[in-house]
Write a protein that binds this DNA or RNA. Structure first.
Lengths: 107, 107
DNA sequence: ATAATTCATCAACGTTTCTTGATGTAATAG
DNA sequence: CTATTACATCAAGAAACGTTGATGAATTAT
């Protein structure tokens, strides 16, 4: 069992911030198919390289993707750890929502 | 079984945007205890009323909370539907991450 | 009726984020 | 070696966001 470091609220906000952009959501969607290099993504999105580089950095800094250099290419992939931490936050919110709904529903 | 309208990517981005601010995350945290009026929240956060009103609107527009007027008070609470849709998005991302990790792990 | 309370909205301002094009760096190719 | 490729980073401007204080609408109290 891996040790899981609890994130502060600032980190959580940062993760959601990274997810708050359509381009970045599309990048994640694209990475669902597996590891890709920036060149693949520029092909797919038909956009400037520096723009993609910017968004990849945001996702990486948020811990949502991993970067693996190989030769002159940089391969990006989904970061399971980061996504699991995200899921924990959402699950806890869902649990509270369910409790509140249950409380409110039966007068 | 409730009918679940699929959200476009813009809507998903909007939900994450709503979650990308520390104050709004604290508001949600506070609402985990159940429905609260704006006055309760201004007490808790010791901040200006218009500031809270702004953040509550963002959360409401994103579908994460519900507003219930009663007399001169407005009660806010977590919106289970919105949170569940959020969870669906994250779960799907997690599933893809797991698949990718499994693929990558065993050379 | 007037006054007070609760909250939403607006305008103005500063801050952050996103995009674009240019420059820099490291690895490979010729 | 020089040239090229793949990518990161920087600087400048545009757009979106968050804060503040003022105003407005609806409700309740006196």
């Amino acid at each position: 069992m891996r040790i899981k470091m609890a994130k502060g609220i600032a980190d959580v906000a940062k993760v959601f911030q990274a997810l708050s952009d359509e381009t970045r959501l599309l990048i994640l969607e694209q990475l669902k198919d597996g590891e890709q290099c920036v060149c693949d993504l520029t092909d797919v999105f038909k956009t400037g390289q520096s723009r993609l580089s910017f968004h990849l950095r945001v996702l990486k800094d948020a811990g949502l993707i991993l970067a693996r250099p190989e030769g002159r290419w940089m391969y990006y992939s989904l970061n399971l750890d980061g996504v699991e931490e995200l899921q924990d936050v959402v699950t806890s919110l869902k649990a509270a929502s369910s409790r509140a709904a249950k409380r409110g529903c039966c007068p």
